[in-house]
């Protein structure tokens, strides 16, 4: 088992209960959709899974370790094994494609020689070969999200978390991006994606975990429910 949540609860300081007793497990290599209406708790769950936030109660095990009790060094190690993609891409606007992707390798202090060879490889993998010098703001939404995906996978993470990655994209671009996520998953990376895009979920026929008002209400292969 790669990911396991045990009685996971999250209540924000304003009293809003975002998650209530979430128990789920995800095997290595799985592709899992988290679905539900806005405010169902999808984004909160993603944030807890990559330890951006801490649960109010319960805990999360990743690769057999309770990530809520990790020391700083172990948190750094955990994050080097996970990638994150957001709806709004979160790219550095004033930088080019190369620098945005290379940034993830610089941050983990990889040697420059490795950065020079690895970035073009990953850009080719996400369909942006030869676009290294272009400013990210001159790219289309779909291309910007590909840059964000390249940045998320360049460290070969075990798990890729994606929070509404197609939320700002048109249906065709979304479909192309989903192919990329499938390829990443096929290469062995576990993908956990929050989305409320019904078309995508129904086409992909992957495992779907549905949240409603912070509670897990459905866990099945294929289909879509809110």
């Amino acid at each position: 088992m790669l990911i396991q949540t045990v009685d996971l609860c999250k209540t924000y300081k304003n009293g809003l209960e975002a998650l209530h007793n979430i128990n789920l497990s995800i095997e290595p290599g799985e592709f899992v959709f988290l679905t539900g209406e806005s405010g169902a708790g999808k984004s909160t769950l993603i944030k807890l899974l990559f330890r951006e936030q801490q649960p109010t109660s319960g805990f999360i095990m990743i690769s057999g370790k309770n990530i809520n009790r990790l020391g700083r060094k172990d948190v750094v190690r955990l994050r080097r094994n996970t990638g994150v993609v957001f709806q709004d891409f979160r790219l550095m606007e004033n930088s080019n494609v190369f620098d945005n992707v290379a940034f993830a390798l610089k941050a983990v202090e990889r040697p420059w020689e490795e950065i020079k060879t690895r970035v073009p490889e990953v850009l080719e993998w996400v369909g942006l070969a030869g676009r290294e010098k272009e400013n990210v703001m001159h790219l289309s939404g779909g291309e910007q999200q590909r840059v964000a995906v390249a940045r998320a996978i360049i460290n070969d993470p075990l798990i890729l978390f994606a929070d509404e990655p197609t939320g700002d994209l048109d249906p065709n671009t979304s479909a192309e991006l989903m192919k990329l996520f499938e390829q990443i998953n096929a290469a062995g990376t576990t993908v956990v994606m929050a989305t409320h895009d019904q078309d995508i979920v129904e086409k992909m026929q992957k495992r779907v975990i549905t949240l409603r008002k912070g509670r897990l209400v459905n866990d099945a292969i294929g289909g879509f429910s809110l």
């Binding site: 990559f50 951006e52 750094v76 190690r77 955990l78 994050r79 080097r80 094994n81 996970t82 990638g83 994150v84 979160r90 550095m92 940034f103 993830a104 941050a107 983990v108 202090e109 940045r151 460290n155």
Partner: peptide
């Protein structure tokens, strides 16, 4: 940038 650095394991 700082947030991305954190998420990537800096």
């Amino acid at each position: 940038e700082i947030m991305v650095m954190k998420w990537t394991g800096a």
